[in-house]
Design a protein around this nucleic acid. Structure first.
Lengths: 156, 156
DNA sequence: GTAGAACCTTGCCCCGGAGGTAAGGTCAAA
DNA sequence: TTTGACCTTACCTCCGGGGCAAGGTTCTAC
């Protein structure tokens, strides 16, 4: 049963030592045992949890969500139901992201084409036309309505 | 020539006032004129730049990159060549992201399926199997080699 | 036995791209 | 005059750490 320090845990899991300390601090890991000198000692169980975290992160789960799953599991409950719900949510999210990115890709391709054309035609656009031509905005900011009026007076 | 305050500029561009101040502070906008009271006054040109920024942001360019383009343009140069290079880079990046996300999506679907099966079979996995089964890691962290040895001594 | 490398510790500031809030100044309309 | 909609700056927060400082510990080589 080798106990390892952060560096060893990092090596075994492909995470950074800093990240591992962060996970402990955020409660994803139970607090590690310490040597007399204060070095953390991670058990094979800890390493397994770290591997779990790494995989979960690869699935784009946030640390908070991963913690939720781990807490449930540590509480003796079966986190699968909760976890599947999370995964469903992420799946839906992912589909949206994919669609957005595909649109974005199209915008970029169009922009590139327009830029190439403009340059070939020797058309020195006033403001770089490249991005002007890319129309659609995948993610729209909050509109936040505002009444007109309140026209400012200049400093003179 | 209406000059407008941040609120007006925000309204016209769909950006938040906060974001606009940030852009000015980061040098994407030249410092706006002020009223005696210190209110910013944006010219139609500023508004055009803000529209440009918004479109560029929609193409996932970072503020620093947008600033680079704008600086070039303000320097009287044609930023198109530089901008197309950026767009190419982003396009390649995007393709990678898309591929990653598609793989991720597959992982999630598999994970879900595995979870459903496990639950149907009444199989109470030791650690929630859901994520265990998802193998591939789209983004890999830095390996950072490390010599073995340095085995810690336990506190006892 | 001791130097020095290679670990480890905590703590703090930094990134992007803002959002939120505070504490206060300004301006136009009723 | 007062209200309230606007504006100002400054600082804290988010996420997931990276980087560095300043110091303690342990291992290896001599």
């Amino acid at each position: 049963m080798q106990l390892v320090t952060v560096g060893g845990a990092a090596e075994q899991t492909g995470l950074s030592a800093k990240a591992i300390r962060l996970y402990e601090r955020k409660g994803l890991l139970t607090e590690a045992e310490r040597t007399e000198a204060g070095y953390r000692l991670f058990t094979p169980d800890d390493i397994a949890v770290l591997h779990f975290i790494r995989r979960a992160k690869a699935l784009d789960l946030g640390l908070e969500e991963i913690k939720d799953i781990l807490d449930l599991q540590r509480g003796g409950e079966q986190p699968c139901q909760r976890a599947t719900a999370m995964l469903d949510a992420h799946l839906a999210d992912l589909d949206r992201k994919l669609a957005d990115l595909r649109r974005l890709r199209e915008s970029l391709r169009n922009a590139r084409r327009a830029a190439a054309t403009a340059r070939r035609d020797g058309n020195p656009a006033v403001v770089c036309q490249i991005i002007e031509s890319a129309s659609t905005s995948p993610t729209v900011a909050h509109p936040k309505g505002r009444r007109p009026g309140a026209r400012p007076r200049r400093r003179d």
